[in-house]
Structures are given as C-alpha cells and as structure tokens.
Amino acid sequence: MEPVIANRRNLKKVWRQLDDAYENLEKAFNSFNLMEDVPDFMRHETERLDVSTIVSIKHNIELLLGDKPVRRRK
C-alpha cells in the first residue's frame, strides 16, 4: 500500500472506519456471549480484547481534527 497523507478527509475516514469496527465488535461479542456451550477459553479471549483502545484512537483523531467533531454518515 502507498502511504496516505493524514489530511482532514483521510482522518475523518479512519475515524468512521474505527467507529464501525467498534460497533461491529460490540455486536459480535454480545452475540457470542449469548451463545451456550462455548468453550471457556474462547470466552476469555473476547474478555481480554480491549476495544477501549479504539475509543482512545478515535479521541486522538478528534484532537488532531480540532474543534469540529466527526459526524456519522448515514
């Protein structure tokens, strides 16, 4: 892949992708945790994954962008 410049448009795109990833991971983990007869080691793996890192990266992107928050596109 070619390097990409960290301009406003690209940072907003990454922010949205991270937002989607976080939402999809939450949904997947919730669905997974509702399943019965899942081996304990698999449950522990989902508990160990720290999705709050995604929130932190999104926040840092917002700081780079300045005063305007990123809006979700529908």
Rank of each mutant, 00 (worst) to 15 (best):
A6W: 08
N7T: 07
R8M: 04
R8Q: 12
R9M: 10
N10I: 04
N10E: 13
L11N: 02
L11C: 01
K12A: 05
K12H: 01
K13T: 13
K13N: 12
V14Q: 07
V14E: 11
V14G: 01
W15C: 00
W15G: 00
W15N: 03
W15H: 07
Q17W: 10
L18I: 02
L18M: 03
L18W: 01
D19R: 10
D20S: 15
A21R: 10
Y22T: 04
E23I: 11
N24A: 15
L25M: 11
L25P: 01
E26N: 09
E26D: 12
E26Y: 11
E26F: 10
K27S: 09
A28H: 04
A28T: 09
A28W: 04
N30D: 14
N30G: 10
N30W: 11
S31D: 13
N33H: 04
N33R: 05
M35E: 14
M35A: 12
M35F: 05
M35T: 06
M35K: 14
M35C: 13
E36D: 11
D37S: 06
V38T: 01
V38F: 00
P39Y: 04
D40R: 11
F41G: 02
F41A: 05
M42H: 05
R43D: 00
T46K: 04
E47D: 10
L49G: 07
D50A: 03
D50E: 04
V51S: 12
S52W: 04
S52E: 07
T53S: 06
T53F: 09
I54Q: 02
V55T: 15
V55W: 05
V55Q: 12
S56M: 06
S56V: 05
S56F: 06
S56R: 10
N60D: 14
N60L: 12
I61T: 00
I61E: 00
E62T: 07
L63T: 08
L63D: 10
L63M: 12
L64I: 06
L64V: 05
D67W: 06
K68M: 06
K68T: 10
P69H: 08
P69Q: 09
P69M: 07
P69G: 06
V70Q: 01
R72H: 10
R73A: 07
R73C: 02
R73W: 03
